[in-house]
């Protein structure tokens, strides 16, 4: 029964940026079924409402989950404000996952824009845990400013540990930024992957996804190997409310992750 939110308690919160918070939650009693990277939960802030949020961490310990939330509306602001010890309601898991196994034997290319890095984080962890099943792991992330970059410490550790090629770029460098400036697609020039044997996982604003996917197609990555995570208005997450339609897709059910081969013609239609 997934219809009623299950109480989860906030056990840790970290302020990622001025408007973005990562909450680690654990079930008060009953846990939801296990989440796969790329799937999402409906998070209920008592008395305010529900929003869909992808998992940004799947922890073995006590069925904990991490969710990274940006405060842009009433509900997301209430979720972001949840203190440690506070209870939230969760429903899920919903939607399709990234399906990392699609990349087995080939290169993994992760491209994130802004908060789009959050849903990709459990995928990156899984790829690192499954080292040997994949060839090279490239992680390319774009952010608005250096201060807006999510999980900066983790990315630094990842880059230092060097099982992955990590590159970060920003739109607006502040004083003292010594990294790349430009769109995330510019980082593709310097990434090391064999396009024909690469599976790309892309998440960010839709215009960034389209630009990235086009670039990857041009470089020779097959369309069905470009996995993108999309967003539309969502109310129920169970395929019954009709809000999240993108043409034939119900994104809560047939998404959020889908192949670019499937969605490219849909994204090309205005106001679909």
């Amino acid at each position: 029964m997934t219809e009623v939110p299950v109480p989860y308690q906030v056990v840790r919160r970290s302020q990622e940026t001025t408007d973005t918070t990562t909450l680690v939650v654990e079930p008060v009693a009953r846990a939801l079924p296990p989440f796969r990277p790329g799937q999402f939960a409906m998070i209920y802030a008592f008395g305010v409402g529900e929003i869909p949020v992808s998992v940004s961490g799947i922890l073995d310990h006590r069925h904990r989950l991490a969710h990274t939330v940006r405060a842009v509306g009433a509900v997301s602001a209430a979720v972001c404000a949840a203190a440690e010890g506070q209870e939230l309601g969760l429903r899920g898991p919903f939607g399709t996952g990234w399906e990392l196994e699609r990349a087995a034997g080939g290169d993994v290319l992760v491209v994130a824009g802004g908060i789009g890095l959050a849903p990709l984080r459990p995928l990156i962890r899984a790829a690192l845990a499954g080292a040997g099943r994949y060839r090279r792991l490239n992680l390319l992330a774009g952010a608005r400013t250096p201060d807006d970059l999510l999980y900066a410490d983790e990315l630094r550790c990842l880059a230092d540990a060097a099982p992955a090629h990590v590159a970060v770029t920003v739109d607006r460098p502040g004083h003292g930024w010594l990294g790349s400036v430009g769109m995330v697609t510019q980082l593709l020039n310097r990434a090391d992957f064999a396009p024909g044997e690469t599976t790309a996982f892309v998440c960010g604003p839709e215009a960034m996804i389209r630009a990235t996917a086009r670039d990857l197609r041009h470089r020779g990555v097959p369309a069905d190997r470009i996995r993108v995570s999309l967003e539309r208005n969502m109310r129920c997450a169970t395929g019954h409310c009709g809000h999240c339609q993108l043409g034939p897709l119900l994104l809560c059910r047939d998404g959020p992750v889908a192949g670019y081969d499937r969605v490219a013609p849909l994204l090309a239609v205005r106001e679909l």
Partner: peptide
């Protein structure tokens, strides 16, 4: 790239 960045996609 420059045009896409003009949109400030990662803004609020």
């Amino acid at each position: 790239s420059a045009r896409t960045r003009l949109l400030d996609l990662y803004g609020p």
